[in-house]
Nucleic acid binder design. Structure first.
Length: 341
DNA sequence: ATCTGTAGGGTGTAGGCTGG
DNA sequence: CCAGCCTACACCCTACAGAT
């Protein structure tokens, strides 16, 4: 019984109980089809038995024109302790599209192999699989997001992944966004993503958390709410769309920060069309960010290439932007490359 | 040279506001 | 009313100063 309790606790404590909804994958992937023809897709943080990523790519294998689909699945030691047999060993799957007449891949069509290790994306055997891949698509563990992205960059992979919104301001992540090496996917980042949950975890959330914050109920089904968004380095149409600006600058409407030499613009849609100086905007600006239209300078977080130092005014705090004595939330500093009259 | 206490920046989770 | 958007805040972590 006590082992049972521990198991339950282990399950509840396990962070990665959030499974991406098939509809969210479909809605995002829809915008990238040309990128996938003849490509090897790798989902390296997936359990193919429950993952909608594997499901999506195996079902869309032929329409997308994929060359190969590879999936690896992480299994931590915790689970092994309680399992009765070795069916919980880490596995990897390879699918090259051979199909039976039903159009749905059968187990015979898919090569299922055991991994030597635990399936950690950082392990040598998983890196070997990564090297074969053209595009990586998955929902990696948020706690390892930095390392995860660093590895993708190191091996020069195209990717389409889900991460926490706050990851934008991580000091390892923001430079990639500034340098246009990574950007926001098509699904608006301002909207929360909802996730499928295992039954026990859904129950745990309902019992201990608040509806609307930790979870939401959709058609009677409990979905986990997370401040998540898509990150990618695959080009898409949205990031080339001009953001239409209607407001005009005036010093009264657009105050300067007390501690930064920049103008506060509290809503992206209020960016003045005729202003060429540095502006602070909410991080959700990145939804509308078109690199031909705007230049990203830096965020209010310290670090970076020293640019931010030039914007600091004498003040007792620089951890948050301050307007008329009142602190506001994190901002991204931008400049309009082509202000209009 | 190493330890330790502390300040404050960095990160993640959750909650709140509001306009259509 | 609630999706869309913004913010509060606790706790972790790191750097660093001063002590040993």
């Amino acid at each position: 019984m006590s082992a049972n309790r521990n198991l339950h606790k282990a399950k509840v404590n396990k962070k990665d109980e959030f499974y991406t909804q098939l509809s969210d994958i479909e809605n995002e992937l829809y915008h990238y089809w040309p990128h996938f023809r003849d490509k090897v897709v790798y989902c390296n943080c997936d359990d193919p038995r429950v993952s909608n990523f594997f499901r999506y790519f195996s079902l869309q294998f032929e329409p997308l024109g994929l060359k190969k689909l590879i999936t690896t699945c992480y299994k931590n030691q915790q689970v092994d302790i309680f399992s009765q047999n070795d069916s919980e060993r880490a596995i990897w799957l390879e699918y090259d599209g051979t199909r039976n007449e039903t159009g749905v891949p059968s187990i015979e069509d898919i090569g299922v192999r055991h991994l030597e290790g635990n399936g950690d994306f950082r392990s040598a055997e998983c890196i070997e699989l990564l090297k074969q891949a053209d595009i990586v698509v998955t929902n990696p563990p948020f706690s390892l997001f930095r390392e995860y992205v660093a590895q993708l960059i190191e091996y020069d992979k195209k990717f389409l992944i889900i991460g926490n919104k706050n990851a934008i301001t991580y000091k390892e992540i923001f430079p990639l966004i500034k340098q246009n090496k990574m950007w926001v996917g098509v699904t608006p980042m301002s909207r929360d993503l909802l996730f499928d949950l295992p039954k026990e975890y859904a129950q745990f959330l309902v019992e201990t958390k608040r509806e609307g914050s930790a979870y939401k109920v959709l058609d009677g089904v409990v979905k986990g709410r997370s401040q998540s968004m898509w990150f990618t380095n695959l080009d898409h149409k949205k990031r080339h769309e001009e953001l239409i600006l209607t407001k005009r600058y005036s010093p009264e409407k657009y105050p300067k920060y007390d501690n930064y030499d920049a103008t506060e613009v509290s809503k992206t849609k209020d960016i003045p069309r005729d202003y060429s100086g540095a502006m602070g905007v909410p991080i959700t600006f990145l939804d509308k960010y078109n690199p031909e239209q705007f230049e990203i300078i830096w965020t209010t977080d310290r670090g970076g290439d020293g640019m931010i130092e030039f914007m600091k005014k004498p003040h007792d705090r620089h951890d948050a932007p301050v307007v008329r004595g009142k602190g506001v939330y994190k901002r991204i500093f931008i400049r309009n490359k082509r202000p209009q009259a």
